[in-house]
Design a protein around this nucleic acid. Structure first.
Length: 1026
RNA sequence: GGGGUUGUAGCUUAGACAGGCUAUAGCACUCGGCUGAUAACCGAGAGGUCACCGGUUCGAAUCCGGUCAACCCCA
């Protein structure tokens, strides 16, 4: 059997089968390998945001990877060489340690130390790649075209060494410092957190809100009203803080006097008498008696001091300050130079025998503390206060603010730079630039870098007992300092490294911290390439990277740390473009979460849904808008695009094989349909290319739907018969090359979004290369664009629609040939010619407006005219109805009015309508105002022809019901009424031809099917001819 | 408490930056039609306070101010 030029598709072939087949083809031919090594004259720098592989990839990950892939594939097809097209894995940090703690059943840090840091870290190292196979499998299935053999891994010595280099650079530039200060602290993990980590874990909670009274030490029976939402900090109170600018009142309530912010007095006390008003300034220095006598107040405390952060919006305008447990409070304690009262241990429990709640977790003691306040008449008011409060983003423990030693990057000092460089970034969506991201930069805080933990990149800082500090920027430097470099740079091995202080000769010991894991991922720009120790990365050309994308939660996560580190290290923005992806919600629009059990894992989903369908769905609507994961929608999108195109291809292949068509360039005849389709195809290329370049991939999907609709339901529908014509003339050649061109262009344009299907289409069309992904993106050719033709075609189509409507209104079926259609308006005759088969009329004429078969009839607009004409209205109306509308109209337009029966009528009082002659039905096209008339008269001849078509139609349906092949011959039995008999006699050749009937027998036989056509019974039976 | 985004038919969605005929289209629904590439298509019907209130304007889904709701972020 001769092999066919174009593969014929089994009509039942599914997308799933296509995608699997192509995936296998790619493997067999190593297409991915060829894509990865494909060159280009322009450079595109890619950077993969590293996930942690200790959890399963979910559907959102599939989406980010799809978008990355679209960008990679598009740039590969547009002559770019992609730099660093590799994956990356984030390995360190609390999430990993937490998994390990769970595994071993540990609850405190000391358990880890007793167990052994070496063994603990060993477990961490093993656990992080638990699901890496699944990640790679998902990448494979979804078609993510990256090179996993070159993945960067943040736990490698090389990677960490690059970070050391950066940290040392920062230290030497004075941007890295150690400080004892109050930081957000997780009492369960026993470590502090950075602001961007804290930002991950806010939750709404109800906390107690208490107003308490501090007794004045100077004035009798006088109190200060202070407000707090953390009663457990009250035993540690050292100061009361007022805003010197604000107004306070001294009031009297039930015999006692209180100082309180004037604007808040009414909220706190129901009945009070104001004695006088004072400025906050006047309260400064006043002394008060300790609220709870459990701890010895340090010297210099228990005074009213000033703080500009105090507001009168809530609370009492007097803030209780416990310097141990608040950032502002700490600054006050520091400024006043007092000792800090900290009765809380690192596990967040009271640890002072003087405190009645000793040993209790502080937040759990709140209720008892409130009871104590009440009992001792210290409480003025207590309520519940709903606000959001930070929780540890990994272990869900409420955070405390706690004083600790910590290392900081002085981000606040480079704030201006951060803001400046942000201006150079192309944000998608653009409002992030000055919204969420820009705002965050504007108030950037110093970055708490050190973690008092085990599994992380060690902070490369060594100190001696004299306080000298050395930052080590490489392994070699350790040797140079006389230390021995361990094989593994992690704890605990690095902790063994000691050397003599270059300044004083004392032994230097490493600071016991690891660093924030966000510093790891934020260093990917350079550390992935082991900069500066290897020469494959040049900040001059490789920063900024061209494009990054991640989910929205990374805006202040990865996007932020990349930006900060690049600003410091390279004085540049880290990336040119950043696209932020919103979440995929479940079918009902709820956020997916493990606890709700509605998470969808990528692998599970990809086993049910073809990857191309899923990829299309991700881009159905802008990626920065959240979407509900709905299989019905997923099906719909691919049905409207890919499945329809598959059918078009199927039609093409079937006929092209019969005609032995071979594509060797576009050969257009004068047929407007072809030139129209080619023009539309080019418009599609242009719009898509622009959309890809501006990262608006969803617009490609939208445009593709319109394109496919045009191709299938307009172009092909009208061109079908041209492909079935006998022989192979110029017109047929033109039609084939147009269809081929449209299909191949579609494959090219859609290749980045639907890589599997596009390649299937491309390969079956004999695209030329081994894969569409190794070919160039379709070029826009301006010479093939014909906007006038596109517009003319639209007009012609609008006429078709109008005729259909008129047929409907006049109960004339589409199969019934019309005697005559008249068209008046701006319409191109040649273009109309190609669509006339849709009109099914014996005669179609384009006429002038003046020759339209209408008369103008005039009438009064009663609502306008009646108030003026009053009782004369009916007489005038009669008169005007009898007038010739044409005359009346010309009079109105010449004179601006017309006089009838002594009344002057304005144009708005007169309605002139167009009434078609009785033979015709009339309508106007909606968009273009083209007048369309159909002749309603059906003569006997045409009527019989219509009946013949009805017969053909019914016989065709029965052929289809019998699943006959196109070429199968039949014998047809008919039992007909008189009209149909006459139609049969008149058109028997036509009917035989259309239905592939060898013979037609008019007789009553068994097994006939009864139809009712135009109210008459028609019985039909068909048999396969022997 | 502050900031950001979103709100268009039962569902999905266009239009909003650059105000202008009857607010776009699809899915689903009803009725009718067309069809030998098609799970397609066409027509009609039904479905809309363009979240709400106010302002600017000859004219507001669109611009401005406020309110509400949802989501996100921050303190």
């Amino acid at each position: 059997m001769q092999s066919l030029r174009f593969r014929q598709i089994d009509p039942g072939m599914t997308l799933k089968e296509i995608d699997s087949e192509i995936l296998k083809y790619w493997k067999d031919k190593d297409i991915l390998g060829k894509i990865l090594t494909k060159g280009g004259s322009k450079k595109f720098v890619f950077l993969e945001g590293p996930p942690t592989a200790n959890g399963r990839p979910h559907i959102g990950h599939a989406m980010t990877r799809t978008i990355k892939d679209i960008v990679l594939r598009f740039n590969t097809m547009t002559d770019h060489r992609i730099y660093r097209r590799v994956g990356g894995w984030d390995c360190h940090g609390l999430p990993v340690e937490l998994e390990a703690e769970k595994h071993f059943g540990f609850h405190t840090k000391s358990e880890i130390i007793n167990f052994g840091v070496e063994k603990f870290n060993q477990y961490c190292r093993e656990s992080i790649f638990r699901y890496i196979d699944e990640w790679k499998q998902v990448d494979d299935l979804i078609g993510f075209s990256i090179d996993h053999s070159g993945d960067y891994i943040t736990l490698r010595n090389d990677y960490m060494e690059s970070e050391w280099f950066a940290l040392k650079t920062m230290y030497e530039n004075g941007l890295l410092y150690k400080d004892y200060t109050v930081v957000p602290y997780c009492p369960r993990c026993e470590t502090s957190l950075s602001s961007h980590e804290v930002a991950q874990g806010y939750k709404d909670v109800k906390d107690p809100s208490v107003y308490v009274r501090f007794r004045s030490a100077d004035e009798d029976n006088t109190y200060f009203v202070a407000w707090t939402t953390t009663p457990w900090t009250l035993p540690s109170n050292e100061f009361l803080v007022v805003n010197p600018e604000m107004e306070y009142s001294l009031i009297e309530v039930q015999g006692s006097r209180y100082y309180v912010a004037s604007s808040r007095a009414g909220y706190i006390f129901k009945d009070y008498r104001e004695i006088r008003r004072v400025k906050g300034q006047d309260l400064l220095g006043k002394r008060y008696v300790q609220l709870m006598p459990f701890l010895d107040a340090p010297a210099g405390t228990l005074r009213v001091v000033a703080g500009s952060f105090v507001t009168s919006e809530d609370g009492s305008g007097i803030v209780h300050a416990a310097p141990a447990f608040g950032a502002d409070d700490y600054q006050i304690g520091k400024a006043e130079g007092v000792d800090i009262l900290n009765p809380v241990d690192k596990n967040g429990r009271f640890a002072d025998p003087g405190i009645p709640w000793n040993g209790r977790f502080v937040r759990d003691a709140n209720d008892d503390i409130i009871a104590y306040l009440k009992k001792n008449q210290l409480l003025i008011k207590s309520e519940k206060y709903e606000h959001s409060y930070p929780f540890c983003y990994r272990c869900d423990t409420p955070l405390l603010y706690y004083p600790l030693d910590a290392w900081f990057i002085a981000v606040s000092r480079i704030r201006d730079k951060l803001v400046e460089y942000n201006e150079r970034i192309n944000w998608k969506p653009d409002y992030l630039k000055h919204g969420r991201f820009g705002n965050f930069l504007g108030e950037a805080k110093d970055w708490n870098l050190s973690r008092d933990r085990f599994w992380g990149t060690p902070l490369p800082a060594w100190r001696c007992r004299n306080g000298h500090t050395v930052f080590v920027g490489s392994r070699k430097e350790i040797e140079d300092l006389g230390g021995k470099v361990p094989d593994d740079l992690h704890r605990p091995y690095i902790d063994e490294v000691k050397f003599k202080c270059p300044t004083c000769g004392e032994e230097m010991v490493r600071e016991p911290y690891v660093i924030d894991t966000w510093f790891d991922s934020g260093s990917a720009t350079y550390a992935a390439s082991h900069y500066p120790f290897e020469r494959n990365f040049d900040p001059a050309t490789d920063v900024p990277v061209s494009f990054i994308t991640e989910a929205i939660d990374q805006t202040r996560g990865w996007f932020y740390v990349l930006h900060v580190i690049a600003a410091i290290m390279f004085n540049k923005n880290a990336y040119e473009s950043a696209l932020s992806i919103n979440f995929i919600l479940d079918e009902q629009g709820r956020k997916m979460s493990k606890s709700k059990g509605n998470s969808v894992y990528a692998l599970d989903f990809l086993n049910q849904v073809p990857p191309d369908s899923l990829r299309l769905f991700f881009l159905y609507g802008a990626p920065w808008k959240s979407k509900n994961l709905d299989k019905k929608v997923i099906d719909e999108v691919s049905r409207k695009t890919l499945m329809t195109v598959l059918n078009v291809y199927s039609f093409f292949a079937y006929n092209a094989n019969i005609d032995n068509f071979q594509y060797n360039g576009l050969h257009l005849s004068g047929n407007p349909l072809d030139r129209y389709m080619v023009s539309k195809t080019n418009s599609f290329v242009k719009a898509s290319r622009e959309a890809y370049e501006s990262l608006d991939f969803h617009e490609v999907v939208r445009a593709s739907m319109e394109f496919v609709d045009d191709l299938s339901n307009f172009y092909l529908r009208l061109s079908r018969r041209r492909f079935w014509a006998e022989g192979f003339d110029e017109d047929k050649q033109s039609a084939y090359s147009t269809l081929y061109y449209a299909l191949k262009t579609f494959a090219g344009v859609m290749a980045p979004i639907t890589p599997f299907f596009s390649d299937f289409l491309y390969l079956n069309l004999g695209g030329g290369r081994e894969s569409v992904h190794l070919d160039s993106f379709p070029e826009f050719e301006g010479s093939l664009l014909d906007e006038k033709l596109e517009n003319d075609m639209d007009r012609a189509y609008s006429v078709i629609e109008t005729v259909r409507r008129l047929r409907q209104e006049n109960s004339i079926k589409g199969r019934q040939p019309l005697r005559e259609i008249l068209i008046a308006g701006d319409i191109d005759n040649a273009v109309l010619g190609v669509v006339k088969s849709e009109l099914n009329a014996k005669e179609i004429r384009i006429i002038d407006k003046e020759h339209e078969p209408i008369r103008l009839s005039a009438d009064l607009r009663m609502e306008k005219a009646a108030p003026v004409l009053r009782s004369k209205v009916n007489a005038v109306r009669e008169k005007i109805r009898s007038m010739d509308g044409r005359d009346l109209q010309s009079q109105l337009s010449e004179n601006g009015s017309v006089e009838i029966e002594g009344f002057k009528l304005d144009p708005e009082m007169v309605e002139i309508s167009r009434v078609p002659d009785p033979d015709y039905a009339f309508s106007q096209t909606e968009k273009y105002g083209i007048d369309v008339f159909i002749n309603r008269n059906i003569d006997r001849e045409d009527y019989l022809e219509g009946l013949a078509r009805e017969l053909v139609r019914r016989i065709q349906v029965m052929r289809k019901e019998m699943n006959l092949n196109y070429t199968d011959r039949i014998i047809t039995y008919l039992d007909l009424s008189d009209d149909f008999l006459e139609a049969l006699n008149r058109h028997s050749e036509y009917i035989k031809n259309e239905t592939q009937s060898d013979s037609i027998i008019t007789d009553k036989v068994d097994g006939m099917k009864l139809w009712e056509i135009n109210g008459e019974p028609v019985r039909i039976k068909i048999d396969l001819a022997k």
